[in-house]
Write a protein that binds this DNA or RNA. Structure first.
Length: 264
DNA sequence: AACTCGGTCAACCGCTCCCGC
DNA sequence: TGCGGGAGCGGTTGACCGAGT
């Protein structure tokens, strides 16, 4: 048994892309749009795996990509979001228009980790490095217990995460709150992360270049299955509000009265 | 000039999720 | 309801490059 391979490995190129391959891919997507990655290589005359084409397009060729160094503000946003979401690079990327998950992941591993360590903060837990008494419950969305990774409830209804006022049942003491404030020190970004109910929508059923833009991804409802591993029963929308730029709910959530149940 | 080493980042791999049949 | 295939995601790899010796 076993899965069929995603492509005919014997006849596919690997490694760095050539300019000609890039151009073929760009031309093809310009005409036909994104999607059908499996069949795209053949249609575009590329000897590449579909996955490779997709990655090349998303991480390098997409016209809406922002190249260049990360700003200080972007750094802080990434740190904040990572403290909430853990290594959910695609979700973090969704909050940074023009940046890709791969780019952010690399940037995290090469720059931000060191930056946090130099601040005396553990990049995984976002707690002070010298802290001896490690609780298994720390930040609301620390990797070990945030709902996007190992903690996968069968079903969620509606979630509100307010970083500045975390209502974690395990984050109860003044001491812990104080530690949390210290670990945030100069980060005064207002980061309210809200997960609410949204009407069921098909996940990127008709992918287009616009539907994959970072901004549209933010507006796009994220199903709970995407977040929790496929066992939940209702789609969930992520409304992210922070930095004073996006205080409004998305259209889907505005249509829902079910909202704001404290979580974490 | 040659070599080593560490940092960076594009690309690959393997797994999971979701949808359609 | 179960299965297979397509797509997406996160972790890892390895080529490349510049700084240091």
């Amino acid at each position: 048994m076993g899965r069929s391979p995603c492509c005919e490995k014997a006849h596919t190129n690997k490694g760095a892309w050539t300019k000609e391959e890039d151009q073929r891919l760009i031309d093809h997507i310009r005409i036909h749009g994104e999607g059908c990655w499996r069949s795209l290589p053949k249609a575009a005359g590329l000897f590449r795996c579909g996955k490779s084409c997709r990655l090349r397009w998303i991480n390098y060729l997409r016209p809406d990509l922002k190249r260049g160094n990360f700003t200080e503000e972007e750094d802080e946003i990434i740190i904040k979001l990572h403290s909430l979401l853990g290594n959910k690079w695609s979700l973090i990327a969704g909050r940074l228009p023009g940046r890709t998950d791969n780019e952010i992941k690399n940037y995290w591993n090469t720059h931000i980790k060191r930056k946090l360590i130099s601040r005396g903060i553990d990049p995984q837990t976002h707690r002070p490095l010298n802290e001896k008494n490690h609780h298994h419950h720390h930040r609301c969305f620390h990797r070990q217990n945030h709902p996007y990774s190992s903690f996968r409830p069968k079903k969620i209804e509606s979630i509100t995460l307010e970083e500045n006022n975390c209502t974690s049942s395990s984050m109860t003491t003044d001491e812990e709150q104080q530690q949390k404030r210290e670990s945030n020190h100069d980060q005064d970004i207002n980061l309210d992360l809200t997960i609410g109910l949204a009407p069921a929508t098909k996940r990127e059923s008709t992918p287009t270049s616009s539907s994959n833009s970072a901004e549209s991804r933010l507006q796009q409802p994220v199903s709970s299955s995407q977040l929790y591993g496929g066992e939940s029963t209702r789609p969930v929308c992520l409304c992210w509000q922070f930095g004073g730029e996006r205080r409004e709910m998305c259209r889907d959530c505005q249509n829902q009265s079910l909202y704001h149940r404290s979580y974490c």
